[in-house]
Amino acid sequence: MKFNLKVWRQKNANTPGKLVDYSIDNVNADMSFLEMIDILNDNLVRKGEEPIAFDHDCREGICGMCSMYINGRAHGPHHAATTCQLYMRTFNDGDTIYVEPWRSKAFPIIKDLVTDRNAFDRIIASGGFVSVNTGQAQDANNLPVNKDDAEKAMDAAACIGCGACVAACPNSSAMLFVSAKISQLALLPQGQPERDRRAMSMVSQMDEEGFGNCTNIGACEAECPKEIKLTNIARMNRDYFAASFGSQETVSTGEGH
């Protein structure tokens, strides 16, 4: 297969970038999108040009590193899949494909398609600790969990933190990510002792990072490779209001660090 690519090239955060045209031939239809970029980079290196920088790691859809905005969609046209799970057979021979990085003020570009997603790590860190009993692990039956809640917590925990929600959101909001991380603990008994403080700290940190505000459009849910649901955002709203208005907790700005 043959493709025309328009790839965002940017030297570093301080230099403005632009779309650069590349063409690639002899692409195997069963190659993943990342493998296609590997071949393209190989060609570029042979020609003595700078290869395209892009994030990748596990290449099996679980690490959340790959992060390309392909043909106007986060992780490309597939539903519930990451860029590494996108195969070239999805496209037609001769297609022009746009490849851009996640675009958000909170995800500054490091180089080309690589963005700095440390904002997510700082939000996680602001969530703080979860208190557990030390010593021998207790019998699992000592801690009954409603089956439905366990399922919902597991579904929320499926979030790989790739940032597709931010990339897909017209407002660059991170609420799907943050709500999944708040929900996975809020739904379980182990998450209860710090539940109020966690919701307040993580929301406060999210706001500090410069993400946009959620306006309930739903693009995040549609583009999430792990199908995280908007119900998590509603749960986060409930938890945040309950914690802010109802609990004795106060969180000052920047305390999450």
Partner: peptide, 13 residues
């Protein structure tokens, strides 16, 4: 302001 550089191509789901 949360997206200072816009996408050149967006396809809304």
């Amino acid at each position: 302001d949360a997206r200072p550089v816009k996408y050149s191509y967006v396809k809304h789901p």
